[in-house]
């Protein structure tokens, strides 16, 4: 069963703020979801290989080491899309005290 501390940890991973008065509701809902998932535990999976990828291609998917700079326009678009800029840097909230 999921408890408050786990709920708040998961919420922080998802960058969600949860008010104290919302906690009980979330716990109830999430536990319901988890108990549904629990049904799967009844099945034996010992012979099942974990599915890590939807493609089962066995050949390697890789490219040669060739550098090709991105076009100037695209770079400008990327930078202009930033929430804040300072000259050519992304400007962000101070991370070191």
């Amino acid at each position: 069963m999921l408890e408050k501390i786990e709920l708040l940890t998961v919420a922080s991973f998802a960058r969600l703020h949860i008010d104290d008065k919302e906690v009980d509701g979330y716990i109830k809902d999430l536990n319901k979801i988890l108990s549904q998932a629990n049904i799967l535990q009844e099945l034996s999976t010992t012979d099942v290989v974990p599915t890590t990828h939807i493609v089962t291609k066995t050949a390697n998917a890789w490219r040669s080491d060739i550098s090709k700079p991105c076009s100037y326009d695209v770079i400008e678009l990327i930078l202009n899309n930033a929430p804040a800029k300072k000259e050519r840097f992304y400007k962000i909230k101070k991370v070191l005290k």
Partner: peptide, 9 residues
């Protein structure tokens, strides 16, 4: 010391 941080990718 800056009162914000700068990021270069």
């Amino acid at each position: 010391k800056l009162d914000y941080s700068l990021l270069d990718l």
